[in-house]
Write a protein that binds this DNA or RNA. Structure first.
Lengths: 225, 225
DNA sequence: ACCTGAACACCGTTCAAGT
DNA sequence: ACCTGAACACCGTTCAAGT
């Protein structure tokens, strides 16, 4: 009674689509982790042959890029700029964080990729709009965009990777690190061990995002003065 | 006259070592990119059989973790705390950036991993020492450590990944993004296109690091007052 | 036009056999 | 104790054949 042995009928001609394949890939990654994204698993999840997906994607890498676009789409779904540009940047940052938290295997594999797609472009435009609304212009807008966007994407991507490795290896580890063979050589690490284990990663991200927002605020104030 | 067909003699008993294997792996990644790290390539680079490495590492993943430790070792080589804690944090940040720039394929694959090793511990201790020197204590030290360390590692890891994909695909891409089919829908992106293409990623990193240092400074001042 | 099934080169890993 | 070579299961990809 395995899933792959149930239906052996030939698939109708137009059953498969890029969007359907991407959704199946995302479901596979969500439920079975990063190793699950293979043409064989994807095929049987779609009740299709191992090679059917090649009609719609020319390589595994192209599926990863499509997944990145799908994560952008999910993140931005329902987004509207806030009245205050600070709230727009907060909203966008936490949307990325939430997507990474809810789809860690997909985010870990895809979030660092440039898609050149429409949803990525929407995200870029949304951040630039907020920075523009803050009062920055020209080159300064681009720099602040990059400071914000690189930080948010990098940290969320790493957060996703951490969630995946926690699911795979079990627990955070680190324990060994803070019981080194020669504790006297690493006094600060030994002393901070308990606090480091108790760190709230979301709170760390919040502080990082607020730092960038504060910086944009300061630069905008200077520009107006 | 391929490299693998030259020497076919059996390797002496103690020729292979963990450090030698790690160095060969790093060389392979540096010279041939992320696809080059396979047991077969590693074996022939070491003039050994495909499976010889298994005597020293029990899986491919264990090699990746050892590479992460090696990158920590390379980064910290010769590090001494500066008089001013700000310069210590700057030094540590740019060491990570330089390592990511010089070994992009290895950094992209390994830099996000926790090693539980001695060089990672040295790095943690060095950052904590600087934050302590700034004047923070207890939980606040741990939080500021995390804000700094997560940012530096995440951004450098993403920088490495970007370098790898530039080498693979050629050029930054993005061009397509900033010539969208419907430019009117993304006015801010279209307007900022030229500036976005001209962004200096090192300057972005510099600003991110200075933001965190400024934040630690402000918190330390508040704590003392 | 789209899906299937056989086939190929490659990869991580295991294990019995050599020295 | 450490290295080799055959073997296995799996994976991405290609391609001729079906409908």
């Amino acid at each position: 009674m395995t899933a792959s042995s149930v239906s052996r009928r030939r698939l109708a001609r137009g059953t498969l689509s890029r969007q359907g394949i991407v959704e199946a890939a995302l479901g596979l990654l969500d439920e079975e982790g990063p190793e699950a994204l293979t043409f064989a698993r994807l095929g049987s999840a779609l009740d299709a042959s191992t090679t059917a997906v090649y009609r719609h994607f020319s390589s595994r890498d192209e599926i990863i890029v499509a997944l990145a676009e799908e994560l952008d789409r999910i993140s931005l779904d329902g987004y509207e700029p806030a009245e205050d540009w600070r709230d727009s940047l907060r909203d966008l940052a936490w949307r990325a964080w939430r997507t990474a938290s809810e789809h860690p295997a997909a985010a870990s594999a895809a979030m660092h990729r440039t898609t050149r797609g429409v949803h990525e472009l929407r995200a870029v435009d949304a951040v630039l709009e907020a920075v523009h609304q803050a009062g920055l212009r020209g080159e300064e807008t681009a720099m602040s965009y990059a400071v914000y966007a690189h930080l948010v994407l990098s940290v969320c991507c790493q957060h996703a990777t951490r969630l995946v490795s926690m699911a795979t290896e079990g627990e955070e580890g680190w324990v060994q690190v803070y019981h080194p063979t020669d504790p006297a050589a690493y006094p600060y690490a030994v002393q901070a061990a308990a606090h480091l284990l108790a760190i709230d990663h979301a709170e760390v991200f919040r502080r990082q995002v607020e730092l960038v927002i504060g910086d944009i605020e300061a630069r905008a104030g200077r520009a107006q003065a």
